[in-house]
Nucleic acid binder design. Structure first.
Lengths: 353, 353
DNA sequence: ATGAAAGCGCTAACAG
DNA sequence: CTGTTAGCGCTTTCAT
């Protein structure tokens, strides 16, 4: 686009913000008194001075510089959230819970998109620390030794969300993945399914991978169904797109199972798409069960049955736990949220015809 | 959950971070020299002192306190993003672009979920200002007079994203909504459709509402098709859920049009769902065109044709424009991004049988 | 009830 | 090449 010099240029001039000194001078009091008033200390000034100060504050449009306050109180009121995947529905919901709690408590949240990249995560951790955030929430990824070392070295309060350390020695909030999968697969069995496949996220993932497969196995075993490893497919990820890459491994199973348990709703949506395009009917000839209960479950046809995790509440809780830790140097060690199996249209009851 | 006192309690002890003074003492130099070294000034110290300082920095695990630096430089390196809807795919994508640009430039972003609520927006603006953010990005909403007044009063740099002021006197980045709709509807006409309905977001919305309807009208008019207002339905919002509430107003049109243009992909997905559940075939007896090009378009069957806005790039650009403004007090006044009509499966070519 | 003064951790002149 | 010093805007004793 052609633009005459200056036409597409925007110029601003920034006026300097008034400081506590200006307020003090205009109100004919000391800065100490102004400080007392704006911080609402219950003593140290008469009603008259208070009103006078407040009037000046209003007139000057004075707003305290939190940065300066931070230097003294050593609390920035900011927390960092490390998200592996910023544009997934999953992260978006969790983030909303975190943000909500933060707002309620007068804190702000820095979003940090790590893309599951070690270098980037470490860089972010560094920047956040230099900004002296009060703490961080680490989302749905394995807390690598390097991350942990950094956090401990600088004693940065942290709570893990939708993930945990093997020893459980760092505060976390999660659902019980193994139990959730167990219940979901049991529900499938309850519907009459005996040949059930699994589309796993990433089997090496010790949090959202292995435990969900384990739950699947136990459910089958406990119901007297032989576990057939060839019915388990590793999608190497939890995204919609991962299904396509696993397509050729999925196809051979289509005639061998009547149902598929997927480690995420996106995988379930991907599988649904894949299966329908292969000409199969869902749930007529194939049932599908997802995990998470994201909005996508009700946007597709048939709507997806799933295992619900209360993501927003979990985010809120994690933020609350972190703030407790920040404010009182102590807090809960973990919080396990209840899951719910939600049956919609994508799962067929084989009992009824 | 029962827990013996202390069992579910996590306690931390925070060590105080080393300061520039400690580094200086350990390295036997002045704090000024340490400052020079860690800021990489190209002069002011020998290679020997530099190495000595760096060694101490490493040994002590020293990381500069950006907050203190901020007091002097008057730049926090933080920007605020005001999002009306944090858990929509739309926001998520834009946010990713913003975050990406920020990271590249060593900045951090505070997410602020306004829920389109005036009080909450103003509260956030206040908190952000008190934290002395360098500037804000205001997302896809009308910049109300109160917001604008506050921003100007404190001369907070701002760039609007996916929105603009009527006068265009505040920097913004957008696509041309009117032109995009015009092109989308023209494409529908090119496919042979003559009876085209529109599911509008919110007609009072001067940004994403009215202009898109206008584009729709002009396209019809320019192709010699009479504009029939009864074919335009106001969904009073852009979300999937809005379609259900408009259901009874949509149904009568189902037999009168061969295609629907929707003001967002979520609306398109909602309409698709609605229409299919009414027994119609898409695109067989009804074509659907969305707007945005979000991932949802390829998750449903049939995949949705849409008008693409380059959301990530737009977010990146807005952040860049804001940083220019912050760093040099001047920058571009606006940036209009190109849109693209993307034809997928949900639109039928009436010309070919 | 109020004010003076000492920092919080750092940068940026200004000397030497 | 290096150190001393004066703040940045605010909170917080400690006097008065």
């Amino acid at each position: 686009m052609y633009s005459v010099a200056g036409v597409n240029v925007y110029v601003i001039e920034r006026k300097v913000a008034p400081t506590i000194h200006e307020v003090a001078r205009a109100a004919r009091v000391s800065i100490a008194t102004v400080s007392r008033v704006i911080n609402g200390l219950n003593a140290g000034y008469t009603k008259e001075t208070r009103d006078r100060v407040l009037r000046v504050v209003d007139k000057l449009g004075y707003a305290p510089n939190t940065i300066a306050r931070t230097m003294i109180t050593r609390k920035t009121g900011a927390i960092g959230v490390l998200v592996p995947d910023l544009s997934s529905m999953f992260s978006a919901h969790i983030l909303r819970g975190i943000e909500e709690c933060s707002l309620r408590n007068g804190r702000n949240v820095f979003v940090s998109h790590t893309e599951s990249n070690g270098r980037r995560t470490l860089d972010y951790l560094k920047v956040l620390y230099e900004k002296r955030i009060d703490g961080v929430i680490f989302l749905s990824e394995v807390l690598r030794p390097e991350y942990r070392a950094y956090l401990e070295k600088h004693s940065i309060p942290v709570v893990l969300l939708a993930t945990r350390t093997p020893a459980g020695d760092i505060p976390y909030v999660k659902v019980d993945d193994r139990a959730a999968s167990y219940d979901g697969v049991s529900a499938l069995i309850g519907l009459g399914h005996r040949s059930i496949g699994m589309l796993s996220g990433s089997m090496e993932d010790p949090i959202a991978g292995a435990p969900r497969v384990e739950g699947y196995r136990s459910a089958l075993a406990d119901h007297g169904i032989r576990v057939d490893d060839s019915l388990i497919i590793d999608a190497h990820g939890f995204h919609f797109g991962c299904v396509e890459q696993a397509g050729s491994r999925i196809d051979p199973l289509l005639s061998r199972v009547t149902a598929f348990f997927c480690a995420s709703d996106e995988l379930a949506a991907g599988l649904l798409n894949h299966v329908i395009r292969r000409g199969l009917d869902v749930p007529g000839s194939m049932s599908i069960l997802g995990y998470d209960d994201l909005p996508i479950t009700t946007m597709v046809i048939p709507s997806l049955s799933t295992i619900r995790q209360p993501l927003v509440e979990m985010g809120d809780c994690a933020a609350m736990m972190l703030l407790d830790l920040v404010d009182s140097a102590a807090g809960r060690k973990q919080q396990v949220f209840p899951h719910t199996v939600v049956l919609r249209e994508s799962t067929r009851d084989l009992g009824k015809g």
